[in-house]
Computed example of a mutant assay.
Amino acid sequence: MELAIRSRSTGFTRCSTRSPQPCTRCWKRCCASIASSLPRPGVAGARISPVRRRPARFVPLVLGLALLSAVGSACDDARDVAEQRFTPTTPGVLTVAVSLPAPGYWDVDSAGEPTGGFEYELAVALADRLDLELAWREVPFEQMVAGNLDGADLALSQISVTDERKSLLRFSTPYYESGAGVVAADDDDITDLATARDRSWGVVEGTTEEALVRDVIRPDNTTVFADETACVQAVAAATVEACLLDLPTALVIEQEVDGVATVARFLTREQWAVAMSPDAPTVDANVAAVDAAIRALDNSGAIDQFAAEWLDSRFARDPADLPVIEARL
C-alpha cells in the first residue's frame, strides 16, 4: 500500500535557524528563493491528505557572541543540507518503506492513514528538508532488512545497523539508540538470564531481538511472529510467556494490551538508521543528503522533540527503573 501524505504548498522555502530572525547569508545561499508555482508530480493513485504544521515558537532576541554562534551553526546546517541533492525514484516524491503496525512510530487511523508518530514526524521533516513530497509504502520488516525495499527510496522503520545488514543496505548516520525490552505477564519476575532461559519466548521475524533470544537467551521454545503487537497479544493469551522487543516499542505497546508489562531490559545499545538500497544509481549522493538532513534535525533538537512527544510521553514506565538482565551480548 502506498499513500502520499505530504504535499508542499508554499511557493518558497527558507532555512531553519535557532534565531528568531532569518539569517541573511543563510537565506541567500542555502535556501530556495522562489519555487515553481506548478504542482509537483504525485504518486499514481495516491490520496493526498494535509499534514499538520507545528506552531511557530518564538524566543527573545539575545545579543552577543552566543546568538551569533547559534545562528552561524544553524546556517552551516542549512547550507550542508542545501548542498546535497537527493534523487528519488519518482520525481518530486520521497517514498518511504515502513512495516506496520508500528505504535508510537507510525500511528494510523481506522482508514490506515498516518496520523503521527516518531518516525512519521522524522519522515515529514526529511521530505521537507529535501524539498520533496512524501509517500509511504508498506513493506514487511523481514523483507526490508533482507535488502528489498520494494522500490521505495528509503526505509524508516526502527532498523538497527548490523554488520550483516550493512552487506545488504546502505545506512545513514543514526537517528536513535535503543535497548531491548522483555514483555511478560504483569506479575512475572524475569530479572536474570537463568530465569529468562526457563520461559517460552516470542520474537518478531527478522529483528535483532530474534537473534538475541536465539543466541543469548537460548530457550527451549521460541515462536516467531509477524509483528510486535501479535507477539505481545500472544503473551496476554499465554501462548508464550515472554516477548523480546525493542525497548521503546515494548513500553508503548504494553499500555494497549491488558495483563502484560515490560519487566526487564537488555542493554543492547542498538543504533537505528535510515536504510537505502545500495543498487540505486545515486545512492552515494542520496546517503549524503539524508545524513546532512539528519544532522541538521539533530542539531536543532527536532529529533529529541519528536521522541519526547511520540515515545517518551507514552511510555508505561521510566525505562531506567527496569532491572537490567546481565548478559554477554
Rank of each mutant, 00 (worst) to 15 (best):
M1F: 07
L3K: 09
I5P: 08
T13P: 03
S19Y: 03
W27H: 11
R29I: 06
C30A: 15
S33D: 10
A35W: 07
S36I: 01
L38N: 12
P41G: 13
P41H: 05
G42W: 05
P50L: 11
V51D: 00
R52S: 08
R57C: 04
V59Q: 14
L65P: 03
L65A: 13
L67M: 06
L67F: 08
L68H: 07
L68Q: 11
V71S: 12
D77M: 04
D80K: 11
R85H: 14
T87V: 15
T87L: 15
A97L: 14
V98Q: 09
P103K: 10
D107Y: 00
V108N: 00
S110E: 15
G112D: 06
G112H: 00
E113Q: 10
V124S: 04
A125L: 13
L126C: 11
A127T: 10
D131T: 08
L134T: 03
R137Y: 05
V139P: 11
Q143H: 10
M144H: 03
M144S: 01
V145C: 03
A146Q: 15
N148S: 11
A155P: 03
S157M: 12
S157W: 13
Q158T: 12
L168G: 01
F171T: 14
F171I: 13
T173S: 10
P174F: 06
G179S: 13
A180C: 13
A185M: 11
D187V: 06
D187P: 02
A194W: 06
A196N: 09
W201E: 04
W201K: 07
W201Y: 11
G206S: 04
T208Q: 13
E209F: 01
I217G: 02
R218H: 10
R218G: 02
P219I: 05
D220V: 04
D220T: 10
N221L: 06
T229R: 11
V235E: 01
A236D: 11
A236E: 15
V240M: 03
C243H: 07
V252S: 04
Q255V: 01
V257G: 00
D258Q: 13
T262P: 15
V263R: 15
F266Y: 00
F266K: 12
M276P: 06
A285N: 13
N286P: 14
D291Y: 02
D291F: 13
A293F: 09
R295Q: 08
N299T: 05
N299A: 15
G301P: 07
E309K: 15
E309Y: 02
E309Q: 14
D312N: 00
R314S: 12
A316L: 02
D321R: 08
E326T: 12
L329P: 00
